[in-house]
Structures are given as C-alpha cells and as structure tokens.
Design a protein around this nucleic acid. Structure first.
Length: 108
DNA sequence: ACGTTGACCTATA
DNA sequence: GTATAGGCCAACG
C-alpha cells in the first residue's frame, strides 16, 4: 500500500463525530489537489482494509452522498450519518456547510 | 498493452 | 442557474 491511501484513511478516521468532509479537501491536504478521484479510489479500497474507515463521513463538494451505492445498502450510508446527528434530505446534507470539517484548517 | 471507467473538481458557455 | 468540457491518475476488462 502506498502512503497516499494510508494518509487518506488516517484523515478519515480523525473526522469528528457528526462532522463531514469532502474528497477535494482531503486531496488538497495531501497535496494531490486536482486528483481528488484518487481519494475516491482510496475509499473504494477502504472496505478491504483491516481498520474500519468511516467513509460515510466523506462526501462530494455539494454534500451529496454520491458514494452511497458502494456501501452494502444505499440507505446504509444515510442511516449512519443520521445516527451521528447529521440531517440528510434527498441524499444531501442539509447543514453541510456547518458540518463541514476541513483537514487543512482543523488538522493542519 | 490499450481503452474505458470512476465515491471528483474547476472552468467555461 | 444548469450544461458541457477538460484534467487528473489508478484500477479493471
């Protein structure tokens, strides 16, 4: 495994409960801005990682749950987020702007 | 080995 | 404001 994926997983695990972030923010934090798709790939491989990765806390820039289909059940991701106190409406995070957790600002 | 795809983002029309 | 285009790079067929 390259350090890139490990770094991505490390960041995702450090996301506080009830907060979310975006692929672009993570990519930018890792210095691979513009290649945010790789972050998505990292998430794709996250499910066969030993350590659990809360990929449900990572959404796209619009706060839309685009990756929900990659979970076992499309509704699983929304349930997990709502379980953490996040409000979802039509697969979108309503208070996304408030719940947004920027690793550059918070983790830097 | 090559072409296509993808859990994205930014920019232009 | 929505629509389309381009760029990015790794994995899959």
């Amino acid at each position: 495994m390259s350090d890139f994926y490990q770094s991505v997983y490390a960041i995702v695990r450090q996301i506080p409960i009830g907060r979310v972030t975006s692929y672009g923010a993570i990519a930018k934090y890792l210095g691979t801005a513009g290649s945010s798709r790789m972050v998505g790939w990292a998430m794709n491989l996250s499910h066969h990682q030993e350590m659990y990765v809360p990929a449900h806390r990572v959404v796209n820039r619009n706060g839309l749950l685009t990756g929900k289909i990659h979970f076992g059940s499309p509704d699983e991701m929304q349930e997990l987020l709502e379980n953490e106190g996040i409000t979802i409406e039509n697969d979108c995070i309503t208070n996304f702007k408030d719940l947004f957790w920027d690793p550059i600002k918070e983790l830097k």
